[in-house]
Computed example of a mutant assay.
Amino acid sequence: MKNTIKILAVAVVMICFVSCKKDSKPNYQYMPNMYEPVSYEAYGEYGVFPGGQEAMLPAKGSIPRGWMPYDYENSNVGYQKAKDTLKNPVRYTKENEEKGKELYNIYCAICHGEKGDGKGPLVKREKILGVPSYADIGRAITEGSIYHVMYYGINSMGSYASQTNEQERWQIVQYVEKLKADLEGKTPRIDTDVVVTEVKEEEAHHDSTEEHNNAH
């Protein structure tokens, strides 16, 4: 008798669940938190936001994490100021040069050429014209002017500020200066104090190893 009651109770519950389904109306949500998102959807419309739109501009004066303001304006005056005063804060090492080469070949070589002579694939196909060599005396590019142009773009060249971070742009600057030196028959810059430091560290390690061996 007890088993029969249990079976009937289960059957009634199942019938209740099945009877809730009706194709002409939405089904009941027994656990709404499994269906309704807790967070706001990107670009969603919500009354709690000004204008009812979730997507808003950042607060005035706010700075994204990991991003540093660039204090040179996008103008001829700003360009000249950067050209004359802006210096590369990244050390000129072989490691940074190799990283700069990798990035240069991705973003720059298509127009400027692998040698920096202004004869990239797009120029050879005449898809874009007027790309000068880095060794062009009339340009007299500097580390500051290279960075400024990458940040804002110039003429038909767009900005690369969104594709690269500050460190990467300065690494590209080093490699562009290396190409310029090669075209002019000069020795590319490598910071000698970095090399001396590395040599001293190796010598110190070697001396400590010898002392350790002699002690035994």
Rank of each mutant, 00 (worst) to 15 (best):
Q167H: 09
N74Y: 14
N213E: 14
D71W: 05
N88T: 01
Y104E: 01
Q167M: 14
E201G: 00
G116Y: 02
I137E: 15
C108I: 06
E102R: 10
Y72E: 06
Q80R: 13
Y134A: 03
V195T: 11
K180W: 05
N88F: 03
G52N: 08
D182C: 01
P26F: 14
E203G: 03
K101V: 04
T192Y: 08
P121H: 06
A9K: 10
E143L: 01
Q174H: 14
N105C: 01
D182W: 05
V77N: 10
K186Q: 08
G47T: 10
R139E: 09
Y134C: 02
N165D: 15
S24E: 15
D71R: 08
T93L: 02
A161W: 11
K94I: 09
V173F: 04
V13Q: 03
V199M: 10
D182K: 12
D84C: 03
P26E: 13
M14T: 10
S62Y: 07
V38Q: 13
G144V: 04
K127L: 09
G120P: 12
I146S: 03
P121C: 03
R65I: 15
H148Y: 07
Y35N: 06
K178L: 08
Y147M: 11
E114W: 11
E203M: 14
G185E: 12
I128T: 08
D23E: 12
P89E: 13
Y104F: 11
A140V: 08
T85P: 00
S159M: 08
S208W: 15
N76T: 14
E203L: 14
T197D: 06
F49T: 09
E211D: 06
T192N: 07
G138T: 10
M31P: 00
P188Q: 06
Y175G: 02
L57D: 02
T4C: 07
Y107N: 04
S19E: 01
G120I: 06
K115Y: 00
Y46V: 04
H206A: 15
R189Q: 09
K21S: 09
A135C: 09
G52E: 13
I106A: 09
V176P: 05
R125W: 10
K186S: 03
Y28S: 06
V13S: 09
Q167T: 12
H212D: 13
V38N: 10
K60I: 12
K180E: 09
E36I: 00
E54W: 10
